[in-house]
């Protein structure tokens, strides 16, 4: 046993978990291989052994997708505990914890960025922030992202990673589904291309609203995407779920999304796609 194998087989303490990629070593949750973080970063946090797409933060996503020099926007919005919600913990405390864990700015981060030279307005869900749940701030930021696209006359990209509505904001969060979906009509009216990239996981209220309204919807390999959670469905129907149920490839087969795109190809894919959607070869139409 050399020093390396000893290190790899040593207790978990020195291994970082999947949500803290700052560590040196990361264990792939697909093939259980222990991987060198730097190597993983070079492959956009996709396991070079089994192609598992590891969950990443909004900031890492921005780094992989955008050209250098992108800027974050709408950072000043903060959630409010309107209902004074308390389950096992207070919502106020959950927000503080999430701020510490995932950075302030709630579960959606907005950017003005370029993808291989094409200007876009983008909103990226931060899953580490309370499971990417959509409350008032997330809804508002998505709308602001769309309004920025309208002002700048550039495409709008939405990258989803969310467990659904934020229960701690109760009906205010449910209504964000209506708010964000309604806004898509304005993108249509002004012929602003709207592309959704669904990543692991995209569920519930986010899935059943703005995530499914893009002109083009692409997903990352293996991502869990659906309305109801697999456990709820299993309990309701009482039968075994089909192989690969609610995974990106399953959705593609059922005609529900346009394409499954490997994270390492997404930049090039989006660049070409946005080129098509903004070409307007038939000028009379515009």
């Amino acid at each position: 046993m050399n020093w390396l194998t000893r290190l790899i087989e040593s207790p978990r303490a020195i291994l970082s978990s999947n949500d803290t990629p700052e560590g040196i070593w990361i264990k792939c949750n697909g093939c259980n291989e222990t991987l060198y973080n730097k190597e993983l970063m070079r492959s956009a946090m996709v396991c070079p052994r089994c192609d598992q797409h590891l969950r990443i933060s909004a900031a890492e996503r921005a780094g992989f997708l955008f050209d250098e020099g992108f800027e974050q926007r709408d950072t000043e919005l903060r959630s409010v505990d309107v209902l004074n919600f308390k389950d096992l913990k207070r919502y106020k405390d959950r927000l503080k914890e999430a701020d510490k864990k995932a950075g302030e700015g709630d579960s959606v981060r907005n950017y003005l960025a370029h993808i291989q030279g094409t200007l876009i307005s983008a909103s990226i869900f931060e899953f580490a922030y309370m499971g990417g749940s959509m409350g008032s701030v997330a809804g508002e930021k998505i709308v602001l992202g769309m309004e920025r696209a309208l002002r700048r006359q550039c495409p709008y990209l939405l990258v989803c990673a969310s467990g659904g509505a934020r229960m701690q904001e109760s009906m205010l969060s449910l209504m964000q589904m209506a708010k964000t979906s309604a806004m898509v009509n304005q993108l249509h009216e002004h012929k602003i291309p709207f592309v959704c990239l669904l990543t692991d996981p995209t569920m519930g209220g986010v899935s059943a609203s703005v995530a499914w309204l893009g002109d083009v919807i692409i997903a990352e390999p293996g991502a869990l995407i659906g309305f109801a959670g697999p456990r709820v469905i299993q309990e309701t129907v009482g039968s075994k779920l089909p192989e690969g149920f609610q995974r990106a490839e399953f959705l593609l087969e059922h005609g529900l999304i346009d394409a499954v795109v490997d994270r390492r190809e997404q930049r090039a894919y989006l660049h070409t796609l946005l080129g098509h959607l903004t070409a307007f070869s038939y000028k009379q139409h515009h």
């Binding site: 589904m177 209506a178 979906s181 009509n185 309305f227 309701t236 149920f245 529900l256």
Partner: peptide, 26 residues
Amino acid sequence: GAWPGIDAEEHGQSEAIARNLMELAV
């Protein structure tokens, strides 16, 4: 709530709900 079933997911429960939200708005 909307039906949480295998068939519902296969036929695009999310898409169907999302589209109604968008279309009703206008």
